[in-house]
Design a protein around this nucleic acid. Sequence first.
DNA 1: GAAATCTACGAAAACCCTTTCGAAAAGGTA
DNA 2: TACCTTTTCGAAAGGGTTTTCGTAGATTTC
Lengths: 340, 340
Amino acid sequence: MSDATAARAVTLGDVAARAGVSISTASKALNDRGDVSAATRAKVRAIADELSFTPNAMARGLLAGRTGTVGLLTSDLEGRFMLPILMGAEDAFGAGRINVFLCDARGDAIREQHHLKELLSRRVDGIIVVGRQTDPRPSLGQELPVPVVYAYAPSDDPRDLSLTPDNYAGGRLAIEHLLACGRRRIAHVSGDPAYAAAQDRLAGARAALGEAGLELVGEPMFSEWTEHWGRDAAAMLLQRHPDIDAVFCGSDQIARGVLDSARDLGRTVPDDLAVIGYDNWEVLATNARPELTSIDANLQQLGRQAALRVFDAIDGIDIGEGAHHLPVRLVIRGSTIARR
Amino acid sequence: MSDATAARAVTLGDVAARAGVSISTASKALNDRGDVSAATRAKVRAIADELSFTPNAMARGLLAGRTGTVGLLTSDLEGRFMLPILMGAEDAFGAGRINVFLCDARGDAIREQHHLKELLSRRVDGIIVVGRQTDPRPSLGQELPVPVVYAYAPSDDPRDLSLTPDNYAGGRLAIEHLLACGRRRIAHVSGDPAYAAAQDRLAGARAALGEAGLELVGEPMFSEWTEHWGRDAAAMLLQRHPDIDAVFCGSDQIARGVLDSARDLGRTVPDDLAVIGYDNWEVLATNARPELTSIDANLQQLGRQAALRVFDAIDGIDIGEGAHHLPVRLVIRGSTIARR
DNA sequence: GAAATCTACGAAAACCCTTTCGAAAAGGTA
DNA sequence: TACCTTTTCGAAAGGGTTTTCGTAGATTTC
């Protein structure tokens, strides 16, 4: 960028002057509006191309009242869950010629307020708030001049619209799959029990077991969402309850640890022991031995949905309120069913 | 968002009227500019707060010529490398009251052009282009009205400024560490040989070995950047060259696979065999058995640098040109040195 | 008391675009 | 020729803010 001439950008006026027409005619020619002769239109278009004229979105937005931008307020970019949501949203917006303002609050409420102000000052047409856990988070309030949709982490105010993955259903789905595979003695190893996700998944699992007249083998084991813990937990578990035939893990990382320990202890997966993970983190799941069956939260879909809701709200459509739990999906791989 | 009144946002005029002063006085009062009495200033401020007035950034940008926004044009959000870069950039910008337009081109040139046009239409003050590989990518051209900095993937035009991690130095660093650990019979397992990163790391490794009067054991093994390949490669390697005492892996995933196979084949890491990875992907590296020594490309720092360069360019400072290789960092863990 | 100096404020231009409405030109009809 | 219709274009307003410059009033100086 040595010679980036900071020359004034070419304006509609420049195009009009060069084409020998008025500014209004030029505008109409470029926007297919009003009555302009075909010849004039072609001429203006040609000149605009030649000067590589790009209309000033700000000037346009000033008039229209709409900016064609949406704010994406994340609390923690780092998280693995943020990305697919972000992609889904960006995807949906990209199709509609909307641009995304990205703000990362780093989990800090003050930074969040600061970013919120920035977004409002830029007159975004809507805001998506993406949390890093499925635990409820403080609402931005009801007084905002733009529609807000909460994704992943629901708002703690039921008047807000929140989209969040259905962890309860995920827990059920995992257990139902294990039961369908003929497993009966199922244990649960999960992460931090303070996470709503951990509790919801467990609740779903217990419900599914209950309907089959079964219970978890032993107490559910909670600690961290890491492979390390998965290994340690599995070692303890297999010693205490050598007769288990399946483990439902709260995350793929934990499941990887469980797989490792099981292998070390001479258990064969899936024949001897079925293992199911959660999150369907592809890199981890597909490189496990055997490949890991998992629950996918459809996060990209969730991001898409959030974006579409914001679209609707912008168009004046009522998008409703409350926390909506989006369906999750079972991805079957070799850790629960032997390959034929 | 049930009651998001689409009421017209409060303008400076509203504040001025309510305060009983002119628009210009109100503006000056809020911006600490011009001559305004302390009393008037306080009054205007109070009213602005009360009405929760937020200046319209578009109207402001229209005048100033600067928008306080920067475009982040990524070619592939999905990639693991994008995130830290994005975070670093967002961080640097956040501090300077600049907002980030995020655009994901999905690796598609047409989408990229489309997004570029959008960004220019929004009159961003600068653009950061983030690629997904360290291979050179097509330049956006020299004719753009705003400064551009290429991060991770350098531009193929030497007149552009590119910041990219120094893979050659990374290769050297890895080998030098292994040599310092007393290893002499070192093999190399890497990913897709079509990646510049793979070739650069290998070249650096060979240079370091050469200086010590050594050579790689066997041919470098290329295939995929996966654990699967790491396992397969290690199995072959240890059969063909049972006497190797270290493996330099092209990625942490490959290294994880190598660790797995080594363990299966009864080799002890690090006593018997040292393993070093690349990328320092924390989740993988710290959960390996033993924890994985790796090379960290300082991507967050790279993103920061890119942002700062754009800042400078906006301020009219010449930011230079050419591809700059940013230093990488060795992170020592248990896979190369036994814990005391 | 007049002149000079400050101080505090307001009017208006500028930024770039879209849109409305009126006017001019061109063509057709009686 | 006088009148009407259709087509094509331009003048001007409007959007919200910043900034420049002028002015009215207050204060000081001789």
